[in-house]
Amino acid sequence: MMDGIEITFCRQCKNALADVKTIEAEMEDLAKKAGWKARKSHERIKAGISACPNACAAPQIKDFGVVAFIIPEVDREICTACGMCVEACRENAIKLEEYPVFSEKCMGCGDCMRACPSGAITGQVKFRVLAGGKLGRHPRFAEEVLITDDVNSIVDVFSRIVKISMENKMRFSHIPGCVELLKERVRG
């Protein structure tokens, strides 16, 4: 925790799809330089960064959150259609036809990739960037602001959240219309 910014990172368990240490270092550096001061705990800007869709850092209930996921791809040259991926999928998001086919229920957790004995399932790691979540009297889940594979984009969104908070002299998720304001600035 740095002055008025509290950042929670997942512990990088066996489910981790990405190394979030680069994001961690950049965000902590930005937090130290920001100058945001919080008199009380509930005034701190809270962030949660998770290296997989299990989201142990609780990014859905923070001012700023990041969740890593994969977009699974099947190499048909080496896939044996053994069905291990189907058994491993807790979301029932894979149907085995000639090769595995992923439905919209796929969360991108990578369980299928880890279960594949031939290594036929791989995937590109992406990050779902969330904003505006909070607990308390009027809880709200964070909304998706951006999907990216670029660490600089993630840090830029976090920087914008800190800036918006400083301009409004209020924790980001307590600002009326905070997510819409952030989306305008990210697009603009």
Rank of each mutant, 00 (worst) to 15 (best):
A120R: 13
G110Q: 11
L96A: 04
E97V: 11
R114Q: 06
E97I: 10
F127K: 12
A115M: 06
L96D: 08
E97A: 14
P117M: 02
G123P: 01
A120S: 14
E104V: 12
C116Q: 09
A120G: 05
P100Y: 11
Y99R: 07
D111L: 13
E104S: 13
C112T: 08
G108P: 08
D111N: 15
A115E: 06
T122C: 02
G108I: 04
P100H: 13
M113G: 01
K105R: 15
K126P: 03
A115L: 04
G108N: 01
I94K: 03
E104A: 14
E104R: 15
E97T: 09
P117G: 06
F102Q: 08
G119F: 11
S118H: 11
D111G: 10
S118V: 12
S103K: 05
K105Q: 06
E97M: 14
V101L: 08
R114H: 10
V101D: 05
E98M: 02
M107E: 13
E97G: 05
P100N: 10
G110V: 07
R114A: 14
A120T: 12
G123S: 01
G110S: 08
L96Y: 04
E104C: 00
E98H: 04
I121L: 07
K105V: 13
I94Q: 04
M107N: 12
G119S: 12
I121V: 08
Y99S: 04
A120I: 12
G110W: 07
E104Q: 14
E97R: 15
K95V: 15
I121G: 00
I121H: 02
T122N: 09
K95Q: 11
A120Q: 10
I121S: 05
F102G: 05
L96M: 14
M113S: 13
C109H: 03
F102A: 09
S103H: 10
K126N: 15
G123H: 00
S103F: 06
A120P: 00
S103R: 06
I121P: 00
D111S: 14
P117F: 03
K95E: 12
C116R: 07
C106T: 06
V125I: 14
V101Y: 01
G119W: 11
G108E: 01
A120L: 12
L96V: 04
Y99D: 02
Q124R: 15
G110E: 09
V125E: 04
V125D: 01
P100V: 09
L96F: 05
I121A: 03
F127Y: 15
A115R: 12
Q124M: 12
C106W: 03
V125G: 03
S103G: 02
G110C: 07
